[in-house]
Structure formats: C-alpha cells, structure tokens
Design a protein around this nucleic acid. Structure first.
Length: 211
DNA sequence: AGCACGATTAACT
DNA sequence: GTTAATCGTGCTC
C-alpha cells in the first residue's frame, strides 16, 4: 500500500511505555478472508516485567506467559472472565516479559462485518473496549504468539509511509483499568495511554476517564 | 485433582 | 451502580 507501511520488529523492540504511547493513532489491521478490517488505536496499557504486579508475568515463565518472554512484535492473546479475549503486543527484547494491551480502536475499514458482529450495539460501542475489539475483528486464542512483523501478515499494525501515526492525538495517561486487587505502586501507576482528537482540545476535558 | 480468581461486558435497577 | 455470565490459568492440597 502506498500510504502506509507495517510496523517493524524494531518498533516493538523498545521500552514498553514508548511503544504504548506511540501506538496511538496507528492502524490495527486484520485481514480476514482477503478483506481488510482495521481501526485506529486510541487506547493502550503497558505491562512491564515480573516486578509489575499487574502483569501476568508476575507469575514468572508459565505456558500462559511464554509468549511475553519471546521476541517482540508478536501477539499475546489471552482469555479472561470466562468469556473474553484480549489482544496485546509483545515488546522489548526476547527474554524480558512485557506487552502492550490494545484497549480501544476507532473503526476504519470493515464496517459491514463489524456491524454484524456487534449487532444491536451503536457504532460508538463497536470497538471501544479490549474484548469488544477482539470480538469485532474475530481475534481469539488461536492468534496467541502470532508474528505481526512477518511478511504478508494477516494481523499487524500500520503507520503512514513516513512512520508517523494516522491520527494526531493528544495523549492522557491514567492508572490501568481493573487492577483493584494489585498492590501499590503498580495499581496506581499511570501506564494507561488514552488518545483524544486534537480538534477536541479546549472543548470537553476529562481529567480522569471513569475506570 | 480441585479451586479461587480475573487487564470485561451487557443487562439489569 | 450493581451483577451475572463463564472458563483458562496458576496455585494449593
């Protein structure tokens, strides 16, 4: 594609906080039966290392966390609450467990299919949650370990051809969602990145989005 | 082998 | 704002 390019492994092979922030405005792409489904990433969270008590890797190397210990640029997809799949991207060097959770995207391509999958829901709620976007893009555990940086990948992230994001966003950081039982400082550390359209600046400002 | 728990969502009141 | 749905994971026995 002329106006875009796939993010390289080097992009993910960097400090997780940097990756989490710079993923905002990039385009998540899923090729399904030859058709493109995509959305602009607008919300992420960082999970970094065994010390991070909010990170699954706090349990060390297990069958579940194995992918996070692997090379960067792979998908870490896991199941939670008995019914939801969540999509993460592995970051940092091989051997160091870290990942970025994709919490929300703004749908770009694949409206018909997503409308079908999220039937009954208004458009604004199609992909505004980590499990919702997995449902919308039909991403489940079979994608765990998938290499986003391989040639002709069916799941990957795009930037513009010059490497910049598609959307110019103002970035707000807040504590990560749903870590109520996690000890401090991990519970409150501001490792959640929320992108808001620059055009919305000066209008409504939400200091801390509801958790 | 058994069990408590959860990086959530939708459908309630 | 509250709660049920639902099952893989990791920890304990």
């Amino acid at each position: 594609m002329n106006h875009s390019r796939s993010l390289s492994r080097a992009f993910f092979d960097r400090p997780t906080l940097l990756v989490a922030e710079q993923l905002l405005g990039m385009r998540l792409v899923r090729i399904e039966n030859g058709q493109r489904l995509s959305g602009f990433i607008i919300e992420t969270e960082a999970y970094i290392g065994e010390e991070d008590q909010g990170c699954h890797a706090r349990a060390g190397l297990t069958p579940r966390t194995k992918v996070m210990y692997g090379p960067p640029g792979h998908a870490y997809v896991y199941f939670t609450y008995g019914m939801h799949w969540l999509l993460n991207f592995v970051t940092e060097r091989e051997g160091f467990p870290a990942a970025v959770l994709i919490r929300a995207v703004e749908l770009d391509e694949g409206e018909e299919i997503v409308a079908l999958r999220r039937n009954g829901q208004p458009r604004a709620q199609w992909t505004n949650g980590p499990a919702k976007l997995c449902q919308a893009f039909n991403i489940d555990g079979t994608w765990n370990g998938y290499d986003l940086c391989q040639p002709n990948a069916l799941l990957y992230v795009e930037s513009q051809s010059d490497g910049s994001p598609f959307l110019a966003l103002s970035v707000t950081t807040t504590p990560r969602v749903g870590l109520y039982s996690v000890q401090e400082p991990w519970r409150s550390i501001a490792w959640r990145f929320v992108g808001s359209p620059l055009s919305a600046l000066g209008k409504k400002h939400r200091a801390v989005p509801e958790t």
